[in-house]
Simulated scan of single mutants.
Amino acid sequence: MSIWTRLSELLARLPAVTAVSGFIDHIVTLVRETFSGETRREVAFTVSMIALVAKMAKADGVVSEDEVEIVKKLFVVPDAERRNVARLFNLAKQDVAGFDLYAERIAAMHTDDPAMLENILDGLFMIAASDGVVHERELAFLEEVGRIFRISEGAFMRTLARHVRADASDPYVILGIPRGTHPDDIKRHYRRLVGETHPDRLIGRGVPAECVRMATDRLARLNGAYERIEREFAV
């Protein structure tokens, strides 16, 4: 049984509520009563991720179609389960309140894997930047998530640069390394980033699929950036 089937069945059992706080309280209770071990952890993580992503989309006051498309890319939900999962997303996106609680739950589950938390932050930046600009309230949201995730200032600024700066497509900005760096140092830096980000490492640890997709997207951008730099030196 897939994680989405388990989650959908759980959501279908919940009473009709209009306040997200009550909805989440019911989910937390049911998760504890229904599941155990790794399944409980995976369902709890997925619920927290959906709620956090929904609140990120709402951070500037409006959930745009571009943001919804990014969310669909991150969470590939089977058609049969989509209605119940959408119920959670739509309730969570009503307001931003409580986003820090979901960020804290995610951080607590992955204190030993800062690279994965950085991938999640990168995915949240993708949502914020999907309409072409990261608004002040979105940036404040992301800064607080970064603090909760204990993302270093350098790592946060590299992620910010990849999504916000006018030169965000610059391969050196994507890799977070200065122009003029020796090619050997660039290669070592690139290989370290790939080692931290590679989806195979996450799959081997049983990480939920949405995090693997975030890592896959980030890895593609790192690979593309390094290939462009290699071509520069080959000229």
Rank of each mutant, 00 (worst) to 15 (best):
R6P: 00
E9R: 10
A12W: 11
S21N: 11
F23K: 05
H26T: 07
H26M: 07
I27K: 06
I27E: 03
V28N: 11
T29D: 15
V31M: 01
S36I: 08
S36H: 07
T39A: 15
R41Q: 11
A44W: 04
F45D: 11
S48F: 03
V53P: 00
A54S: 15
K55R: 14
M56N: 07
G61M: 03
V62S: 08
E65Y: 09
E67W: 07
V68L: 15
V68Q: 13
K72L: 08
F75R: 05
P78I: 04
A80E: 15
R82M: 09
R83F: 07
L91F: 00
K93A: 09
D100C: 01
A103Y: 02
A103M: 04
I106V: 09
A107Q: 07
A108S: 15
A115R: 06
A115Q: 09
E118Q: 12
N119P: 00
I120K: 08
G123T: 04
G123P: 10
A128W: 02
A128E: 06
V133P: 00
E143F: 02
G146C: 04
R150N: 13
I151L: 03
G154W: 00
A155T: 08
T159S: 12
R162E: 01
R162M: 09
H163A: 00
S169Q: 13
D170E: 06
Y172H: 12
H182R: 14
D184Q: 09
D185R: 13
D185V: 13
L193F: 04
T197V: 12
T197D: 11
E210H: 14
R213S: 06
M214A: 06
T216R: 12
T216H: 09
R218C: 11
L219H: 10
R221S: 13
G224K: 07
A225P: 10
E227V: 13
E230L: 14
E230F: 04
R231L: 15
F233A: 08
F233P: 03
F233N: 08
